[in-house]
Amino acid sequence: MIPAPFAYARPTTVEEALQAIADCGEDVKVLAGGQSLIPVMRLRLAAPETVVDLGKVAGLRGVRDDGDAIVIGAMTTHSDVLADPLVAEHAPLIAEATGTVADRQVRHRGTFGGALVHADPAGDLPAVALALDAEFVVAGQSGRRTVPAGEFFVDYLTTAVGEGELLVEVRVPKYTGWSMRYEKFNRVAQAWSIVAVAAAVRREDGRIAEARVGLTNMGPTPLRARQVEEALAGAEATAEAVAAAAERAAEGTDPTSDLNAQADYRQHLAKVLTRRAVSTAAGL
């Protein structure tokens, strides 16, 4: 379909981009990879007056080493994330989850930042960012601020990025010595998650010292399965212990019912997938 008419700006720096957004008033949309925005515009579910395209803002692309963290630019494409050695070394969970996103064409255009700001409950990266305690650097005309992952995802398709602001980069702590697993459940290869579980585990002397578990599509925002994490902390690294902890994965969740799954089935899946993700991450 054809989108409604819109004006178009293509800044080359973050400052220009913020200025362009400020100049264009309220009805403006930022375009990253366009893999979510363009379809809704073509379906005319969104009809912004102005589109500010970040495609030429070179400073927003790429991954860099920043001491105890790696920093992923918002405009880094999914395929660049997949190929990045820093991501592979320090946060392989991100690469694994990114590899399950859509298909090659979409991954070539869609961006890390776009996927996070879009905050689709079925999207794969929000739960991963949450599980890894990522920090989000948000820029506005008045300067930059850093938002912890726990405060970033506010509601269905809503994040802490305010009007007139941009997500510029995401800091992910280095998880040296951890192992990770993303368990995605969907019906066909290129589809979104019905439910998915992101797990990161640090083992010490036959025990699980620490675990982080993020849930995809178990509510309007990504969730941390804190009860599971608590049950795992210090637990023996055995199948039984993991299974017992995973039984608590759906506690406190209120997932939606839709074409793919009704809520109770989603809750069941969360338990099974948590068990599998943690088991794999823990090398069981």
């Binding site: 379906l43 079925a122 969907n186 939606t256 019912s257 839709d258 074409l259 799954a261």
Partner: peptide
């Protein structure tokens, strides 16, 4: 019934299921 009599989508009423949340674009 929830599996067989109707399709999953029809088992919840339409106000419950605006669309698949997978890819609410």
């Amino acid at each position: 019934d929830r599996a067989a009599a109707r399709s999953n989508a029809q088992a919840v009423d339409s106000s419950d299921a605006p669309s698949t949340s997978g890819g609410a674009l």
